[in-house]
């Protein structure tokens, strides 16, 4: 086997390990399956019945937002698991093995994509049960899911970077919560950004989460002609900009996280 094949094989071994861990840890599994179900039901029934939008149900408007919110919050599992592993010395074992050093992070992030896939499928099924539909073509719908998973993968490299610089699970949890809250709620995930006051509106419209939510709405066909797309440039080109965001995050954070990992484990 050449170096690349070895790196892939080792990455798969680590991914398998992390997938097993998620399956065995009830707190993680709850976040991956239970929480998304609760979100979908809560938003669809509680808020969906209270708020009406022109030309479409609020529930349908919300679901892409819930997809994105879940992806952003479950990416934190990547960071949390890394900080836990850092404390335990298992990385010492890995580093004395003749394995590819990049495998730890690729394996971890790949396992998290599998986890995200589980979440997204769960949410989609529960969504279908409460009336959400993909109203575009199957190809666009598939592209929508692909886009969400790609972003999820890219975003776990961001949380990995944050985790490797913070190092302890407690600190990481606090910081991640503080950072992810505005990211999700200062967006168009739950509200129509055009109705937000001046500066908040600008923030919400340039927030990458908004771009992704808008792109998901478009690809799933969860839009209404009565609700025009805001003028902000990223929202006007939401689908290509969303893919571009994923690529940019990967280009910046893969090398950054890899360097931080090397540094974190060689102390």
């Amino acid at each position: 086997m050449n170096a690349l094949q070895l790196a892939v094989a080792d990455g798969m071994t680590i991914a398998r390990r992390n997938a097993l861990k998620i399956r065995r840890a009830p707190d993680l599994l709850g976040g991956v399956v239970m929480l998304p179900i609760v979100f979908v039901l809560l938003f669809a029934y509680v808020f969906g019945s209270m708020i009406s939008l022109p030309g479409m149900s609020y529930g349908e408007y919300l679901l892409p937002g819930i997809f994105v919110m879940t992806i952003v919050s479950s990416a934190q599992i990547t960071g949390y698991t890394l900080t836990q592993d850092l404390q335990k010395g298992i990385f010492d074992r890995f580093r004395t093995l003749p394995m590819s050093p990049s495998a730890v992070l690729t394996g971890q992030t790949v396992a998290d994509v599998i986890m995200n896939l589980t979440s997204v499928v769960t949410m989609a099924l529960v969504g279908l049960a409460v009336g959400w539909r993909v109203r575009s073509s199957p190809v666009e719908g598939a592209l929508g899911f692909l886009m969400l998973l790609l972003f999820a993968y890219a975003f776990s490299w961001v949380t990995a970077t944050v985790a490797l610089s913070l190092r302890t699970p407690e600190v990481f949890n606090n910081v991640a919560t503080i950072l992810s809250f505005p990211l999700v709620f200062l967006s168009n995930a739950f509200v129509d950004s055009t109705r937000l006051p001046g500066p908040l509106r600008v923030v919400a419209e340039w927030n990458p989460v908004s771009t992704l939510v808008q792109a998901a709405r478009e690809l799933f066909g969860n839009t209404s002609p009565a609700m025009p797309v805001p003028d902000a440039w990223p929202l006007r080109h939401a689908v290509p900009v969303s893919f571009a965001w994923s690529v940019v995050l990967l280009v910046v954070f893969v090398p950054l996280a890899t360097r931080l990992y090397q540094k974190a484990v060689s102390r």
């Binding site: 097993l20 861990k21 840890a25 010395g89 298992i90």
Partner: peptide, 9 residues
């Protein structure tokens, strides 16, 4: 010095 094993496995 500290057992480097994976608790969940």
């Amino acid at each position: 010095q500290y057992a480097a094993v994976d608790d969940h496995l």
